[in-house]
Computed example of a mutant assay.
Amino acid sequence: MKRALIWFYVLAFYAICQLFAWGYMFIKYVPDRKGMIIGEGMIFIFIFILGIIRLKNHLEKERNNSQQQNNFLLSVTHELKSPLASVKLYLQTILKRDLDREQQKAFLSNSLKDIERLDYLVENVLLATKLENRSFNLPKEDFDFSTLIEDVTDRLQKNACKTEMIKVDIEPNITLHADRFAITNVVNNLVENAIKYSPPCATVDVRMFKREKDLVFTVADHGQGIADNEKKLIFNKFYRVGNESTRKTKGTGLGLYIVKTVLQRHNATIKVKDNQPSGSVFEVIFENYAS
């Protein structure tokens, strides 16, 4: 793609030089039409340059998309390979060594966590694929949103840290009419991202409450935060915060894209704000909510 852009610039420069050369020749041999030639030439050059700029932007966008997709494939490969290798090692150890029951339970528990991680990754990829199809309708039903949040945070708390890390403050018995699977994915993505981008065992605050006619769900972390110029980009497909070569956190760049798209399908909105003294707050608003 880089070589194609270089050739594109060379051809564009050559074409502009030729336009000026032909214009000079026309003026030289037909001087009485100088005004018409210059006028029409300027209009043609303006349209030509405008086309070059648009084509250049399109090529660069395609290059960025291609790079993001390559990064996504590398990330998915790593995300699949790491837990599979871990599960394989645990099972081989159980088979080859004479372990007591407590050690077996610990190894099997860790294997189950890796399998849950794989399941979560596959669910994300499948849901992202479905959401690409605009005709795909999310099946909606009434369910207890309060219990759903508790279940997700409880599972992530057990997998993340032995000390209390996720602080939950939710209004009980809130019924939501939505796609249960997709909303579970939204809650899971937001809370897991907060854990992922926070220091080890740092506090993550999860809240859900009514605000006038709206239902508000927030997830706040105390990590490094997100730069203002990246706040709008983080919801793009495959986009990940930071530099690809220096990034240490795991992920595929699909999580927040899924979150934004699912919420749009439910007529809900999401905002990202700065937390104090550090970190980010993701605020989801289900407008005109009625329990």
Rank of each mutant, 00 (worst) to 15 (best):
Q68Y: 09
L112S: 11
P172V: 08
K231I: 00
I52T: 11
D214H: 12
L84D: 01
F217T: 06
N71Q: 10
D179C: 06
L254N: 03
F282A: 06
I234Y: 11
K88Y: 07
I195L: 15
I47Y: 12
A194N: 03
G279Y: 03
E164T: 14
S245G: 06
A106N: 07
P200S: 08
V216L: 01
M208N: 10
N110R: 13
L233N: 08
K140P: 00
D274A: 07
E283M: 07
L118W: 06
I234K: 05
L89D: 05
V259F: 09
L233W: 02
L256N: 09
V206Y: 09
K232H: 07
L156W: 09
I149K: 01
S66N: 14
D274R: 10
S135F: 02
N124L: 05
Y289L: 07
Q92T: 10
F46H: 00
L126T: 14
W22F: 15
L74V: 00
F136E: 12
D98Q: 14
K2P: 00
R3Y: 04
L73C: 04
Q104V: 15
G223N: 05
D114E: 14
F282P: 01
I115T: 10
Y257C: 03
H222Q: 09
K210G: 08
L80Q: 00
D144G: 06
K34L: 00
T261V: 11
N193D: 09
K34C: 02
L190N: 03
V241N: 08
L156V: 04
L99M: 04
